[in-house]
Design a protein around this nucleic acid. Structure first.
Lengths: 242, 242
DNA sequence: CTGTGGCATAATGTATACCAGCGTCAGGAG
DNA sequence: CTCCTGACGCTGGTATACATTATGCCACAG
């Protein structure tokens, strides 16, 4: 009966141990994403005992976290051999971008029917934030670029799209910077984004979908064309030739 | 050196521990999918010890398998409370269908540029298999229907789409039968499928995409309209009202 | 009679110990 | 000098034991 009659104490739910495994999962994931995977040619191995020692927990939560990370495609567990950080091949990156294009274009279609002027303003701010000189702050612009696309997906109103693309975007972190610096893509992105915003503002679902699809598939084609650096040493540790 | 010179012992590779956790994961997943989740109104709890005892393994592999299953959205782990089989809400089902529509329509677009006459024949066989009387063998038809859509996604040539939709389709297993029996959808599906095949055969990417999208989004709208049975008791175990 | 508080039980989350392969290195033999 | 073989160590996989917490019941007090 004290649900709303006595609002005396407003304590937070106090997330007790809501996941020592979650913390480990997040920590490892962040460590992986912040590491420049494609910078070094050799394989990156993970040691369970090292991780458990560094994180100050036992191996059990580490292993559960690793299970999740493996399911999400960040690491690969080779039985009796060890854990390696997966290095996405060019083909896999292109596939991820393709799926991203599929989801975001559908989200744009749905968003075109729902957007408010307020949403349009937010998109505009995100799109024009670095319009003056996108080449200057590549990293920041790349971040804002991701935020723009994530905003469109969010405006679609489908939570599942948000969660699915979140994982995809994390995987593409390593590719962002490279793709942005090439071919003056950053500058052209701004133009595309303006057109997308205009289509959304006009509630033109078909146009918004097409523009988003062509924009993102353009990135896929770009990676397909210039992304060979991803496969430089992706498969050099299959067998030990002796 | 005894690889092929001395074929005296032909013992099978005996997948020792190639994944005790994988086996547990598959077993539990199959048990969940084969269980009629939406038949009983009460929550379905899973007991770790029971599972470990039934599968004949320790709790550790069970817990790792459960981590994967939780990540895939089949179970939900409530800290210190236990495991419950998730019962997808109508909204979540609609969202999954929407994502499915996004992916398959993109796959259809890609497939239209790649399909061979052989592929068209296969699709035709899948689509027309139950054309004579789809209402008769609802279960088989539902299976063939899924196979048809999975075939289109496969023809898109993007492996990631196949794996992503595999999980989605498993989740929608429970919904298939119901949606098929309502509104004469099975019969109309055949007509839609014919048009999709024709568009693919004509290499009309835009049309194929549109037809697939409208077909699948029609299912989404149908579930949105008639899928209230999904929420009958989805949230009755939040609090114990006393 | 009802409500509250404490206790007991049980289930999960975590830690540690043990086990089984696989790689590597060294030593011996040809 | 080279190649094969065996042993050791490192790695992950599994099991079991322990602690912490949630829940339900019972007793006592108002």
């Amino acid at each position: 009966m004290q649900d709303f009659a006595n609002p005396r104490l407003k304590v937070e739910p106090l997330d007790l141990g809501i996941g020592l495994r979650r913390q480990a999962c997040e920590a490892i994931k962040r460590a992986i994403t912040e590491m420049d995977i494609y910078g070094r040619p050799e394989e990156i191995r993970l040691d369970e005992r090292q991780l458990s020692h560094d994180l100050g927990v036992s191996r059990t939560p580490i292993r559960e976290a690793v299970s999740i990370l493996e399911q999400e495609g960040f690491v690969r567990s080779i039985p009796r051999r060890g854990l390696v950080v997966v290095r996405k091949t060019k083909r896999e990156i292109v596939e991820m971008i393709t799926v991203w294009a599929a989801i975001e274009s559908m989200a744009a279609r749905l968003a075109a029917l729902r957007v408010t002027p307020n949403d349009i303003n937010e998109l505009h701010d995100l799109g024009e934030a670095f319009q003056d000189d996108p080449d200057r702050h590549i990293h920041d612009y790349s971040h804002a670029n991701m935020a723009f696309h994530k905003a469109i997906i969010r405006l679609g109103g489908v939570e599942l799209m948000v969660s699915l693309t979140d994982t995809l975007f994390i995987h593409m972190r390593a590719v962002r910077a490279v793709t942005m610096t090439q071919d003056n893509r950053a500058r052209r992105s701004v133009v595309d984004h303006r057109a997308i915003i205009a289509a959304l503002a006009a509630h033109d679902a078909g146009l918004a979908e097409r523009l988003v699809r062509e924009h993102t598939m353009g990135l896929a084609a770009h990676v397909e064309e210039h992304g060979d650096f991803l496969d430089v040493a992706a498969g050099d540790h299959r067998r030990r030739p002796g």
